[in-house]
Every structure is written in C-alpha cells, then in structure tokens.
C-alpha cells in the first residue's frame, strides 16, 4: 500500500503524518495523532459521532480520506475551548442543560453545533433540529441538546452585541 505524507492544521497546530493512501481522516486523527475526541459509531456516515470541522465545513471524518485533508484546517472538540481553558459556550451549555449522557456522540454533536451557529447564529428550534439531524444520539432524546444549543446561541449573540 502506497504511503503518503499529509500535512494539515489540527486545532491550530501544524501536524504531519505518514499514512496509507486509503487511510480515513478519522483514523488519521484517532490512531496517528491520538486525537480521540471524535468517535466512530457506524462507518457509513449516518451517525455523526466522527463529525469534525474541515476548512469551515462539518464533515464526517469516517467518509473523508486523510489525503483529502492535505493542507486543510481541522477543528475537533479538543480545539473548542479557549487557549486559557475557558470552555466554549456550547460546551458550557451542554453541561448546564444536561445535554449529554454517555458522552459518545457529544464531541461530534458539539463540533456540528459549533458550525451550525457559524452558519446561522440565531436558529429557531426547528432549524436546530434540522441542523443536527446528521448526528444521532441514543441517550438524551435531543430535547436538552436543542435547549443547550439554543442557550449557547443566545449567549454568543449577547457577547457579540456587547463587544
């Protein structure tokens, strides 16, 4: 199997790895770079547990080849908090609203919600539900996830207005 060198930015750090050309982005992150926040839940791009941000778009890292991320900019849940450790408003809102239980879908859910709020800073409940419909959760029934995203959006908007 031909191996390829990929270089990309992950959570603000420039990284390099030698991978098989068939290696999936999720395996590059988890196996080569030890970034284990994004999970694998289905292998068929239905569950969204592997969701990360690639060049400003939500992607399911189980259906992107690592080589497709060449020179790319990847954000995972590990990169969401501020450099000083302050949690992202979404991370805080998920904790405050009981938006997670087993935690397995949470990293994907958070990175997806992060991108959703970039695309639509003021979503309605219905828009949130559609916006996270590529991310499955078996524990929460989504109600508190929707509440958390809604609250985070309000907080982020308030902060922006104040600045």
């Amino acid at each position: 199997m031909a191996s390829t060198k990929v270089s990309l930015t992950v959570n603000g750090n420039e990284v390099e790895a030698e991978v098989d050309s068939r290696t999936l982005l999720i395996h590059l992150l988890r196996e080569h770079l030890n970034i284990t926040g994004p999970h694998i839940g289905c292998d068929t791009s239905h569950c969204g547990a592997c969701t990360v941000d690639l060049n400003g778009k939500s992607v399911k890292a189980c259906t992107v080849l690592a080589v497709q991320a060449q020179d790319g900019d990847v954000l995972t849940v590990e990169g969401m908090a501020a450099a000083d450790g302050t949690l992202h408003p979404l991370q805080q809102a998920f904790m405050d609203n009981h938006g997670l239980q087993c935690g397995f879908c949470t990293p994907g859910m958070l990175t997806r919600a992060h991108r959703l709020l970039q695309e639509n800073p003021n979503p309605t409940e219905e828009e949130i539900r559609w916006g996270i419909s590529g991310n499955l959760c078996r524990c929460t029934g989504y109600q508190n996830i929707v509440k958390a995203i809604s609250q985070a959006a309000a907080q982020m908007n308030m902060k922006e207005a104040a600045e």
Partner: peptide, 9 residues
C-alpha cells in the same frame, strides 16, 4: 461532563 464535552472520555 467536563471530560465528555472536551473529548477526554
């Protein structure tokens, strides 16, 4: 939650 929301599960 702190570990699960920060990818440290």
């Amino acid at each position: 939650d702190p570990r699960f929301t920060q990818g440290k599960g």
